[in-house]
Nucleic acid binder design. Structure first.
Lengths: 204, 204
DNA sequence: CTCGGTCGCCTAAAACCATTAGGCTGTTGC
DNA sequence: GCAACAGCCTAATGGTTTTAGGCGACCGAG
């Protein structure tokens, strides 16, 4: 049955897992990752809620897929930004990709922080992120053992800063977050150039 | 009506906001901050759900109170740990307080990260945390402007590391997180001792 | 001592979300 | 042409939040 140009009665809405994930990612950016709900998504597709269960196992499955999508998208951006850069440039480029992505797509960034079960995580873009992080350290001279610690430091600082900024932690204090971000990039760069040896245990 | 020693029929369960918050904090540590629900709390007090609404405005209010509780508890621990310490000792002591608290009370730590509205935040223990963070920098020689950046760096790194460790981000990679933590404390200490000047803008 | 008020809990009910079971209808492949 | 399937639907259950209103127990005043 067709009225005007609108297919009215039993038309297919054209729901696919891919479109669900895409719409879910957009919804996350609008209402937060927690607001991504099967119901909200069904409304967005103008479809009854149970219809989505043919395309997605359950709510958890939906969120996992959005997480994988965000991780891959972010890894793509990171890889593109790192191409042709090394050392300080690479460090800042990578950090800025993460930060910009989080500000542009807060819901997807939150999605990327969802804990995945180990099997899923192994086939996600997670390892690509780790790889890119390690690539940055090639521009600095760090011993093998120190590299892991440095990767963890950089990852922690990136994520911590972005998470605090996004949560509004810097909203009501003085200097522009942008300025702090730049100074922190400077500081990390300096630190990587001059990575300290471990402090020996002090026998009391 | 009394059976044995049990008051059976219409006894008061003795719910108070304080006991709700306390139980809510414990519940958060057991099932995660998201699992803290009015229903779950009512079950724990063996009381019907709507009864809690005389003690707490709504679910949001409950969570806010748990957040305030956690922030205060954490600030107390931090202040105690910082007493009599300066410089590197103070830095490590503060970081370790945060990290230990997060591992001991993951739900409360998550609660402490809840975004508060500005009015509530101003009267929370949040400013105390900021104060303690600034106190650490007294042991290092930093210009006024650099202090804020350094505070933000330290806060970001602490929070980022703890958050990644808690989320299991280091679960399946090589070195012990404890070792990385110590090396990162060393690195932060070295960085604060040798804080870099801002890199000048390079005119293209 | 008793009477009214308040406090602390209750039941009832509406609204939203997740999930399962089962039905109906075009479309597609043989 | 028909059977199977894909894609959507209705119906129903159960959990969560929140509001409205009731009822008994305790407490202070007369």
């Amino acid at each position: 049955m067709v009225l005007g140009n609108e297919v009215v009665s039993v038309a297919r809405a054209g729901v696919t897992p891919e479109r669900l994930v895409q719409a879910g990612a957009e919804l996350a950016d609008e209402v937060g990752f927690d607001g991504v709900t099967v119901s909200a998504l069904a409304r967005r597709f103008d479809v009854k809620v149970p219809s989505l269960y043919s395309h997605v196992r359950d709510s958890r499955d939906l969120k996992t897929r959005i997480t994988l999508y965000a991780l891959a998208e972010l890894a793509d951006r990171a890889a593109a930004a790192l191409a042709g850069r090394a050392g300080r440039d690479a460090l800042i480029a990578l950090g800025t990709v993460y930060r910009d992505y989080a500000r542009e797509h807060p819901g997807r960034y939150a999605a990327a922080r969802l804990r995945l079960d180990p099997r899923t995580a192994a086939t996600s873009a997670g390892p690509r992120h780790a790889q890119l992080m390690r690539a940055i350290l090639l521009g600095y001279r760090l011993d093998g053992a120190d590299q892991v610690h440095a990767v963890r430091l950089i990852g922690s600082t990136f994520h911590g800063y972005i998470s605090l900024e996004l949560a509004g932690g810097f909203d009501h204090s003085e200097p522009d977050p942008q300025e702090s971000w730049e100074r922190i990039m400077d500081a990390l760069d300096a630190l990587l150039h001059n990575w300290p040896a471990p402090t020996p245990e002090v026998a009391s």
